[in-house]
């Protein structure tokens, strides 16, 4: 039985070793060396890690990333639940809504960037023109508040539909009997949400939180296109930070940042998962 299982897993393992394991090991290998083009890499142990940890530009990028990821969860998850609750349960309206919600998810990242560039760029965009009417001088490329705010709103725009779809699927799978029972038990709308809807959505919400958290770390092409990571480094999130280092061939440094990145995401994801798995299960009433 054991052997058969591994036989079935073989194709997957071969491809994953090519596209995941070998590259990851290469990155780990980088992180342990000083690498300069034209000379042999030199083994330096954890020196790169120490350098990264001491580097204030890394600390800032990580801090910026954590704030961004937290805001993503705080805004997108509740918003997603609310929209999912408002969607029609069945019929043509439901079908149309689902198709519309799916569209932003299917736009290539680069096109998402183009859409928002056209939308917000100071000479051709609609946003600066409209805000100017209210006397606000909006500039996504130059204003250190407008830039991160726009990137964040872009992310909300782009990814909240995914949260909605997940929550909608979760809502659909709650049997009517649970709502009927709550009605019979005289529960208010809020109590029905709190004790029926929310607990039943738990598996889906775990998924939504984890997916959004992991993927929020990957934000890269949007700031690249919209703000170029600036002004200053106000929109240089972790992926963009690490890519810049890799592009300038600081491979050892970039490798160390990547390993730290992965460690942070896996650790936080695991913590979220553990917390949410047991949250509010059979709370004691006395």
């Amino acid at each position: 039985m054991n052997n058969r299982a591994w036989l079935f897993l073989l194709p997957m393992l071969i491809i994953m070793s090519l596209s995941a394991f070998i590259p990851l090991m290469t990155v780990v290998n980088y992180s342990l060396h000083y690498i300069f083009s034209g000379s042999m890499p030199q083994y330096v142990g954890l020196a790169n890690y120490l350098e990264v940890m001491r580097d204030s530009s890394f600390q800032n990028a990580l801090g910026r990333q954590l704030i961004f990821s937290t805001m993503v969860l705080v805004v997108q998850i509740p918003l997603g639940i609310m929209i999912a609750l408002a969607l029609p349960k069945k019929g043509t309206g439901a079908t149309i809504s689902l198709v519309l919600l799916g569209i932003p998810l299917l736009i290539p990242y680069i096109v998402v960037g183009i859409v928002w560039r056209l939308f917000t760029q100071s000479d051709i965009g609609v946003v600066p023109k409209v805000l100017a009417l209210f006397g606000y001088a909006y500039n996504v490329a130059l204003d250190p508040i407008d830039a991160p705010l726009t990137i964040f709103l872009l992310d909300v725009w782009h990814w909240t539909p995914l949260v909605v779809l997940l929550c909608y699927a979760g809502l659909q799978s709650i049997p009517d009997a649970f709502y009927q029972a709550a009605q019979i038990d005289g529960a208010s709308t809020w109590k029905t949400f709190r004790y029926v809807t929310l607990p039943k959505l738990r598996p889906v919400l775990i998924l939504a939180v984890l997916l959004r958290f992991m993927d929020s770390f990957k934000i890269y092409s949007e700031p690249l296109l919209l703000t170029g990571g600036g002004p200053g480094s106000s929109t240089t999130y972790l992926s963009l930070f690490v890519a810049r280092k890799a592009e300038s061939y600081e491979l050892g440094y970039a490798g160390a940042v990547s390993v730290i990145y992965l460690f942070v995401v896996v650790t936080f994801s695991f913590i979220f998962f553990q917390i949410m798995k047991n949250l509010g299960k059979g709370e004691h009433s006395r």
């Binding site: 054991n2 890519a243 990145y261």
Partner: peptide, 26 residues
């Protein structure tokens, strides 16, 4: 089978991998 849970979890962590750094080893 032995290790199935670990393997499954390892598989999922790959989704978290930073694409931006993988490009050079790729």
């Amino acid at each position: 089978f032995r290790g199935s849970h670990h393997l499954f979890f390892w598989l999922l962590t790959n989704r978290m991998a930073p694409a931006a750094i993988f490009i050079i080893p790729f």
